[in-house]
């Protein structure tokens, strides 16, 4: 099956990391691509994108030959998400693929968790994903077609010590996705979660994450954490490269996945083989 070349694809959290890579991959398939990012740093969260990052994504989309737009917006705001979808519909008349990718992380045990650590992570990763998807559904229902992909995580299949905020949010994404998948299945619209292990992005490579994995070291560096990360999965890979993650998302958006819905696709070096469900 060949991919349609002129699809309209929207990606949240598209200023850098996985979101940018997904956006560029769709662009190289010939898609028209809109990206949104909040372009602002939450205190205590792993490094987030800037407006310069978002501008760079749009420049790269242009270099890939794509018609594109980039907006600053907050996935937790229904108004912002309607603006994102409306912009695509005004320009291109439709939305074929929606990737609800925007996510943040911060770490600590529940007993020490600050209000922003819980609120920012859960409101972005769960409420924000739901708000985003709720905004695009009416357009896809009117089209009677569409692909919705929400970024979840391997941690959404187990408990995450020092990571309860993130784990809760990513578990919630799967419940939401499965429910919406049932609602939209009669229209041929697919709704899936993508569950990667750590991906080689800023969310993985930063001081707080390194210290979570090597609390025994004062100033852990990449080489110090590689083994600890790799120990999480039987393939013993420390983290996915961006193209490994994007391949999963492209599959869920592909013609060949037209009957795949309500799934949580693990791309995790077999980490998921340890999970009961």
């Amino acid at each position: 099956m060949t991919e349609p070349v002129d699809r309209v694809v929207l990606v949240t959290g598209g200023a850098k990391g996985q979101g940018r890579n997904h956006a560029l991959a769709f662009a190289r398939q010939g898609a028209r691509v809109g990206v949104m990012d909040i372009c602002r740093q939450f205190p205590g969260s792993a490094p987030m994108a800037t407006e310069e990052d978002l501008a760079t994504t749009q420049k790269l989309l242009g270099e890939a030959g794509a018609d594109s737009f980039a907006l600053v917006g907050d996935t937790r705001s229904s108004a912002d998400m309607r603006r994102f979808v409306d912009t695509a519909v005004e320009r291109w008349g439709r939305v074929d693929v929606f990737v609800a990718n925007a996510g943040v992380a911060s770490f600590g045990p529940v007993v020490e968790m600050t209000d922003p650590m819980w609120d920012d992570v859960v409101s972005t990763n769960l409420d924000g994903v739901a708000t985003s998807i709720r905004a695009v559904i009416p357009t896809m229902v009117a089209q009677r077609s569409g692909r919705i992909i929400a970024t979840s995580s391997s941690v959404a299949r187990e408990g995450g010590p020092n990571n309860a905020n993130y784990a809760a949010s990513k578990w919630g994404v799967i419940g939401f996705v499965k429910s919406v998948a049932i609602e939209l299945a009669p229209l041929g619209i697919t709704v899936n979660a993508f569950s990667p292990m750590s991906v080689s992005t800023d969310m993985c490579h930063n001081e707080a994450t390194y210290k979570l994995f090597r609390p025994d070291l004062a100033d852990p560096q990449e080489d110090d954490v590689r083994e600890t990360f790799a120990g999480l999965n039987p393939m013993h890979v420390p983290w996915l490269e961006l193209e490994d993650a994007t391949a999963g998302v492209l599959y869920l958006a592909s013609e060949g996945a037209r009957y795949v819905t309500g799934a949580a696709l693990d791309v995790a070096g077999g980490w998921n083989a340890y999970h009961g469900a």
Partner: peptide, 15 residues
């Protein structure tokens, strides 16, 4: 459903 799944994720993490 989302809140219920998330509650399980939180409970397992806290456990």
């Amino acid at each position: 459903s989302a809140a219920g799944w998330a509650t399980i994720g939180l409970a397992k993490s806290l456990a």
